[in-house]
Design a protein around this nucleic acid. Sequence first.
DNA 1: CCGTAAATGTCGTCG
DNA 2: CGACGACGTTTACGG
Lengths: 223, 223
Amino acid sequence: MRLVIARCSVDYAGRLTAHLPLAPRLILVKADGSVSVHADDRAYKPLNWMSPPCTLKEGAENGVAVWTVVNKAGEKLIITMDEILHDSSHELGVDPGLVKDGVEAHLQELLADRMETLGEGWSLIRREYPTAIGPVDILGRDADGTTIAVEIKRRGEIDGVEQLTRYLELLNRDPHLAPVKGVFAAQEIKPQARVLATDRGIHCAVLDYNALRGIDDDKLRLF
Amino acid sequence: MRLVIARCSVDYAGRLTAHLPLAPRLILVKADGSVSVHADDRAYKPLNWMSPPCTLKEGAENGVAVWTVVNKAGEKLIITMDEILHDSSHELGVDPGLVKDGVEAHLQELLADRMETLGEGWSLIRREYPTAIGPVDILGRDADGTTIAVEIKRRGEIDGVEQLTRYLELLNRDPHLAPVKGVFAAQEIKPQARVLATDRGIHCAVLDYNALRGIDDDKLRLF
DNA sequence: CCGTAAATGTCGTCG
DNA sequence: CGACGACGTTTACGG
């Protein structure tokens, strides 16, 4: 990892064109060849960047350093450094990576284990039920034996309802499964998504992650 | 801007919980108080971060530095630094900011100015035509006087077709406008989006940004 | 390599 | 402040 603080101007030409006027900034060059330019605010997003794979060429023009970063698509990032204020390099090695908990995959596991939180007598057929347009999060049955397709989101928005609608359309073409009812399950469901879902006869279920995990923990303690 | 290279472990508890095992990483502390943790790969996304506004408390435990970053929502980022390999601070000042060109808003302006690129005799009613579920990018008329709703994207994918479909459904309920035909316009249209659009009777139009801009420039030169 | 779905998405804008 | 859509979205995962 190379850290450069420099008074620089930056030009990007690719999916759009963008220009950064001359000012002091941080430039990061990482081991994978990627380059990013940071201002002194905002944690997440660089002002400009080039994702790997890409190649950096260090040149000079009229005595000022000019870096050109290009990728395979022909996108270009040009950094012109009028004054270099700091320049250091550091060996970091490969990162062991992030361990996460509480994302959609985890919600899916928990809910599959506890279908009865959706309704009494409900049961699981399978998780990630494959269809031609992608896997349905959970396929199950209600107490009457009616097939249920569940779409799970952390936050339920319109996109998720559309996604479930497409699955339902396809599943209902299968005489072995039809009729299939839809359930839109999320920790939080946005009003517009709820309206759209209800309008389409899709049931909405708000999930309590901690409660689900609690139930799961109880279950684990029993065995 | 403070740059720290340290062998550290990181814990985040907020919208999810996440953990980073002990390894050398870059930690950025910016003037707005935000903190991010970077590995030696990927230009864009930090391994962990806390967006502003947030507060950083530097503490120590058993002789190792422990930083705790919290925000108003109560999300927490805890960085435990076993060994500090580099630590430097730099005054950068406020960034003058980015100048962009070529995004959807610009495409919309250009196309509104040149409705005839969609079809001979086509005309504009208005841009950002308001509906209960959001503004339609462009509402216009074809040569026969039939109402046309245009959805503009840089890249045309399935969700754009869904969006236009919802608008069309709503617009067609208005007897002053109905029947309303749909046009899905983008610089690039993905095959699946095209299939879905066609299946729904929505016309697809591929936009040439440079050509549109060229036409517009010609127009500007005339006045 | 393409296509789809997830994301601690983030970021603007508008009500 | 919440809701919504754009983003150079990026990133991960399948076929």
